[in-house]
Design a binder for these strands. Structure first.
Lengths: 211, 211
DNA sequence: ATGCTTTTTTACCAATTGGTAAAGATACGA
DNA sequence: TCGTATCTTTACCAATTGGTAAAAAAGCAT
């Protein structure tokens, strides 16, 4: 009688049946596919329903609406996306910690290109739905990391760099391989992209950061 | 009697009246605004008409349809976008030529953020309309430039880099400031973005490329 | 002014969109 | 196996979408 799925669940899932778990999963995966390809406004519920193998009304049984699906997707994404930055260890070797971050970001771009594109789409369109999220979660995390990098620089463990711009450059170069895949694919044989990118970005940032 | 504007003009404008020139300009500018914000599928003719200060049917008097506007915009853009790469001078000083390219790309990202986002949107969505254009125009240009860079490296004038990945990194880092402006704006005071980016990218690529 | 062309508006479509109501089918515990 | 709660389908909407037909209004050369 309760009909949890779509209803604005205040505390979110108290319990979810196996069917609910499976279908919500299918829907979110289908939505990731469609949203990452066409952006929020360009995606349609029909496309998502088709991709998920469910009827449109059935999808609206599990989610309150198109926006609900999109927001759920972005929320889930944020955690996974910020994790590598959180794992930068203040106690580790500065250069190796940052290089590990570069490599993890590149691997994520290669392993989760749809997620990268979903995020890119949202930011491109002015971050209308994820904006507050960025301010609340991303901003303090970047501040903390920038301060850490600055301390490392002051200690002489890294070459002097603007920490925030460095972070931007890492994001830009790694995500480029996912977000601009259609362009990269035209210009390079896709077999050599992976290893080539790894070696190149390693050299680029190692040279930049070695004192 | 001829009604040139929207009609599939084979050789394009033979002559265009002042009104045609003005209104086509207005429409393309409005369309750039809307397409760059919402992508092709997310943009509507009504929005474009509104932004242009013209009625929807009037817009369809000047262009064959939504797609025609989009393609026209992308065609115009490609020339401007590829110009800096074309201007890399094989006779100039290798390092300074590439640094000049970096700075020009960054300036374009700052001066024409809408164009950058229009392009990013198109690529993100798999380059459905500009794909052939990329293969025909961009690919040979990149090949040529990559070969030039390789020659410079072989001559010992540049540090050894994968030329294509270097080009990707330049594109990624410079366009990031336009395409991800919504994110950059959350993380940095917008007054320091411009000069900071310039100094940072100069250091990044100079360090990377200096033999 | 006149007659012609170019431009703009008004009044429409047919298709697609996100979303709903309610009946029907299915699972599942007692 | 029965009853209840969960899940799914069918049959719809109202709003928006890209686009058209045709009349009305400007321009403009003579």
């Amino acid at each position: 009688m309760q009909h949890i799925p779509g209803d604005a669940a205040p505390t979110e899932d108290i319990t979810m049946s196996r069917i609910q778990l499976r279908n919500r999963g299918r829907i979110l995966d289908a939505a990731l596919e469609v949203f990452s390809k066409h952006g929020f406004r360009g995606a349609t519920l029909d496309q998502i329903a088709d991709e998920a193998g469910l009827s449109k009304p059935n999808i609206l049984y599990y989610f309150e609406g198109k926006e609900d699906i999109h927001v759920t997707l972005l929320d889930q994404l944020m955690d996974r996306w910020l994790a590598p930055l959180r794992e930068v260890d203040p106690e580790g070797d500065p250069l190796e910690e940052l290089m590990r971050y570069v490599h993890r970001k590149l691997e994520m771009s290669q392993e989760f290109p749809r997620e990268s594109r979903l995020f890119a789409n949202e930011i491109l369109q002015g971050a209308p739905r994820i904006g507050p999220h960025l301010k609340r979660d991303l901003h303090p995390l970047v501040e903390r990391t920038a301060a850490l990098i600055q301390r490392w620089i002051d200690a002489g463990a890294l070459a002097p760099v603007d920490p925030r711009h460095l972070i931007f450059s890492i994001w830009a170069t790694t995500q480029h391989y996912a977000d601009f895949e259609a362009q990269v694919g035209v210009l390079m044989d896709s077999t050599e992209v992976h290893s080539g990118a790894r070696a190149h970005l390693d050299a680029l940032f190692r040279r930049m950061l070695t004192p």
